[in-house]
């Protein structure tokens, strides 16, 4: 039993937790931006698949790693454009459209993979991002290694949270994004286009989701395989609710979640097959549901979430 407890004090455990958290941080921030602007984006799961593939393939074809990240982001933004166009000016059901985007993005990716790599039996590998130790900071006891012995994409994830928080609460753009999710008519009255702000938010959010997917193929692993997103997008949606639509709280949620995930993997090794491994694999999903139930009562949704806006309507 003490063995199960000691895991929590090993540096490698926390390093793994932050690594697992990184794609979730990107995806959660992406979904959070969309939802704060009033648009639920269930395209997230498929957009992550597309981002994971497009980033990886760019590098596989000889592109620079950062070019791969950029291509992934652009791919995500394109799907965001489609989701935004269908749900914002056309006002289609955000649930149905989002599921459609997920099906489309995932199937297009699989189709493209088969066309571009028809012959391969095992997925080819790339040289992924390597950990970069940040001097001084990494010497902080316990958390130093965990936070500052990671790949550059993880550092980008931290920066993303800071940037989202800064833009949301310190810039006019952020005020506009939050306002279209709460009271779009008031924004329109200020002479700002609700459509433009929402479209922009959905595209930016989708780009982040795609980078979250790319983290898996370009930093956590080094190749692309089907089903690798494995529900991470849906978990990100739960994390947004858990974080009550605030970047800081969502970040803490993602790290807590990832720590739990890293813990169950290690616990699985200790228990040595007495408990079926599926029980451990289930835990992240069960935990997400439990977390939702706990916070749901006091959750304050953006007031205009899932409410299409028509100019001149009240």
């Amino acid at each position: 039993m003490s063995e199960a407890f000691e895991i929590l004090f090993t540096a490698s455990f926390w390093v793994a937790a932050i690594r697992i958290a990184s794609p979730l941080i990107f995806a959660t921030m992406g979904e959070l931006i969309c939802e704060r602007a009033g648009v639920l984006n269930l395209g997230i799961e498929g957009i992550m698949v597309a981002g994971a593939f497009s980033g990886w393939f760019t590098v596989y074809m000889g592109g620079d790693l950062w070019t791969g990240v950029l291509v992934a982001a652009l791919t995500g933004a394109m799907f965001g454009l489609l989701h935004g166009f269908l749900t914002v000016p056309l006002g289609l059901s955000q649930h149905v459209t989002g599921i459609g985007i997920t099906l489309l993005a995932a199937s297009l990716t699989y189709f493209t993979y088969r066309i571009l790599l028809p012959e391969v039996s095992s997925p080819p590998k790339i040289e992924p991002f390597q950990p970069v130790v940040v001097p001084v900071f990494s010497d902080i006891p316990v958390i130093g290694q965990a936070l500052f012995n990671q790949t550059p994409l993880t550092y980008l994830a931290y920066l993303t949270v800071a940037a989202v928080a800064f833009i949301f609460y310190r810039t006019p753009v952020g005020v506009a994004v939050r306002a279209v999710g709460e009271n779009p008519a008031a924004v329109e009255a200020q002479g700002i286009s609700v459509t433009a702000v929402r479209m922009g938010a959905v595209m930016a959010g989708s780009a982040l989701m795609a980078i979250g997917g790319a983290f898996l193929t370009m930093s956590a692993f080094n190749s692309f395989f089907f089903e690798m997103i494995n529900g991470r997008g849906w978990i990100a949606i739960a994390l947004v609710v858990f974080g009550s639509w605030r970047p800081g709280k969502a970040l803490i949620g993602a790290i807590l979640f990832a720590a739990f995930d890293a813990y169950q993997i290690r616990l699985q090794q200790i228990t040595g097959g007495v408990i079926p491994y599926q029980i451990f694999l289930m835990m992240p999903f069960v935990l997400s549901i439990v977390a939702l139930v706990v916070v749901a009562r006091r959750a304050t949704y953006p007031k205009a979430l899932m409410v299409p806006y028509q100019k001149g309507e009240r």
Partner: peptide, 29 residues
Amino acid sequence: LKTKFGVDEVVTTLLLNFIVLLFVSMLLE
């Protein structure tokens, strides 16, 4: 969960898909 606790059923039903598939895998092994 939706009517009593206000938990969005989209997320819970999606997550349940993963839980159930793992549960079935466990039963089949």
